[in-house]
Design a protein around this nucleic acid. Structure first.
Lengths: 203, 203
DNA sequence: CACTTAATCTTAGCAGTGTCAAGATTTAGG
DNA sequence: CCTAAATCTTGACACTGCTAAGATTAAGTG
């Protein structure tokens, strides 16, 4: 019941959560600090006690959603640990996350928002948690086949590109959806990823 | 020499071209109608004689760039007509377009900008020119193998997703690039698309 | 040609935005 | 208890998209 106290109590968290809920429903385009501040029952300049700039606020929210995304992937990775279908299932989870929350795609990956460094070459530095999970899993799966490291790296990128592209597509508006998009995605991913595991002796 | 005449002469075109050049270099985020107007030597409300709203202006520019993109793809399609590598080459062109102009990716595909309807199911309605070219080419390539239509459609989506995802990736900032990203892309695409053409008897 | 109409452009202004400065209120620590 | 830090408000500035009113020019009609 701290409704009318001068101090909010936990404004920083309230701003982030309100902002994310806003983005989830309306996207980032129409989001303004003033609106979020008002929704939290606070004046227009109050957020500046917690974020130096709007950009900093965006980054905080982005980290929040990125962690949620990574946790969702991690859960799938756990479920299918030691299963041969772990990779396609990870891919499916990757895509479905944005199918269920289309506005998150632009919010996480739109050029101006990407502050988290992505490293492709060095598999030791995981500065992008979702990519890191993909990389780790794919590397262990592909590693069992005896492929040159360079080939493995290319396959990882291909895998990432495929699911990322599917995510971009399912997050688009004005797409004519199939009635059974979810199993469709699964089939598409499998039709690509299965060759990785069966044709070791190709190169 | 119509430097100081009250009427500009060809303001609509000037706005579009100046705006696109701006986006090409700085992205859409910091673009404002007033700035573009000033760059064209015209007052802040002048653009409203040609575009009802900023959104309409964006759409006009988007169509312009989308046509450029489609023309680039079409050129590759012509070059490699009757070649077995037409599909991978088309894919490479798709990716390289955004590798060379990273800001175009968000500009064309960021959720708020997509006004061009994308149709996946019906291969007859081509409302998205670049996708249409991909679809047409892939359909003709895959059609030579005797695959069920549903499988072909999934393969087309997979192909599209792969190159679109690669485009998204190469357009990201903060990516640690390979020294030879271009041939790398080519290899990655080939490693995926070759199976399409060689293992007909799989399904 | 003269005259009317439409198109184009300018100026001035409104509401909304990010941001900052000054000051009020509350909390925390010595 | 009292000072310092943290938090919040009010008020302002510059910038944005956009509109209304009117000035200037071009196009077309008799």
């Amino acid at each position: 019941m701290k409704e009318k106290s001068y101090h909010h109590g936990d404004l920083r968290r309230a701003l982030i959560e309100t902002g994310i809920e806003f983005i989830k429903q309306e996207g980032e385009e129409t989001l303004s600090l003033r609106k979020i501040a008002e929704m939290c029952g606070v004046s227009n300049a109050a957020p500046y006690a917690h974020f130096k700039t709007k950009d900093e606020f965006i980054v905080a929210m982005q980290r929040y959603v990125m962690d949620l995304f990574a946790a969702t992937l991690e859960k799938t990775a756990m479920e299918y640990k030691n299963s041969p279908s772990i990779l396609p299932m990870l891919g499916k989870t990757y895509v479905m996350f944005f199918y269920q929350n289309p506005f998150y795609y632009d919010f996480l990956f739109s050029r101006k928002n990407i502050r988290i460094k992505l490293s492709l070459g060095n598999t030791d530095t995981y500065e992008n948690p979702p990519l890191a999970i993909l990389q780790k899993t794919a590397a262990s799966v592909f590693g069992k086949a005896k492929l040159p490291e360079k080939v493995i790296r290319d396959k990882i990128i291909a895998m990432w590109a495929l699911v990322h592209g599917l995510a971009a597509i399912v997050a688009m508006p004005n797409i004519e959806y199939d009635d059974n998009w979810e199993t469709r995605i699964e089939e598409i991913i499998k039709s690509i990823s299965i060759p990785y595991q069966t044709q070791e002796a190709k190169e």
